[in-house]
Amino acid sequence: MFQEIERFGGVCTLIWHNDHFDPANETTGPRQFAELMQYLRSRNTAFVNGRDILKELENRR
Rank of each mutant, 00 (worst) to 15 (best):
35 E>H: 10
13 T>P: 01
19 D>T: 11
29 G>S: 00
22 D>L: 05
46 A>G: 06
19 D>G: 04
56 E>I: 06
24 A>N: 12
46 A>D: 11
32 Q>N: 09
15 I>F: 13
49 N>C: 05
22 D>R: 05
29 G>Q: 02
13 T>V: 15
11 V>K: 05
32 Q>D: 06
58 E>I: 09
2 F>K: 07
46 A>K: 10
4 E>F: 10
61 R>C: 04
57 L>H: 07
35 E>I: 04
43 R>A: 12
11 V>Y: 12
30 P>C: 04
8 F>I: 14
22 D>Y: 02
56 E>A: 15
23 P>D: 01
52 D>F: 05
52 D>I: 04
36 L>Q: 07
7 R>N: 13
18 N>H: 11
11 V>D: 05
55 K>Y: 06
13 T>K: 15
30 P>V: 09
38 Q>G: 11
34 A>E: 07
30 P>T: 05
37 M>R: 11
59 N>I: 02
51 R>T: 13
12 C>L: 15
10 G>K: 02
58 E>F: 07
28 T>L: 12
36 L>D: 02
33 F>Q: 05
51 R>C: 06
56 E>D: 11
49 N>G: 11
47 F>A: 04
28 T>G: 03
11 V>C: 10
49 N>P: 00
6 E>K: 11
25 N>S: 03
50 G>R: 12
56 E>T: 14
55 K>D: 11
29 G>A: 02
34 A>G: 03
60 R>L: 10
10 G>S: 01
19 D>C: 07
28 T>V: 09
5 I>P: 00
29 G>K: 00
20 H>I: 03
1 M>R: 12
16 W>L: 01
16 W>Q: 01
37 M>Y: 05
48 V>Q: 04
8 F>R: 15
41 R>Y: 09
45 T>Q: 01
3 Q>F: 08
56 E>G: 11
39 Y>Q: 15
25 N>D: 15
29 G>P: 00
5 I>F: 05
12 C>G: 15
37 M>S: 06
33 F>S: 06
26 E>W: 08
20 H>L: 14
15 I>M: 12
60 R>E: 07
28 T>Q: 08
9 G>P: 01
2 F>M: 13
48 V>A: 07
49 N>M: 02
9 G>V: 00
38 Q>H: 12
7 R>G: 04
30 P>Y: 01
35 E>N: 15
29 G>L: 01
39 Y>I: 12
9 G>Q: 04
20 H>Q: 13
29 G>V: 04
14 L>W: 08
55 K>S: 12
35 E>C: 09
2 F>R: 09
22 D>S: 07
15 I>S: 13
27 T>H: 10
16 W>P: 01
53 I>G: 02
24 A>F: 02
15 I>P: 01
12 C>E: 14
35 E>G: 13
8 F>E: 13
16 W>I: 02
55 K>F: 05
40 L>H: 03
51 R>I: 09
52 D>G: 10
29 G>C: 00
2 F>G: 14
4 E>L: 13
17 H>K: 07
27 T>I: 14
26 E>A: 15
6 E>H: 06
48 V>L: 10
44 N>T: 08
9 G>T: 01
9 G>M: 00
31 R>Q: 12
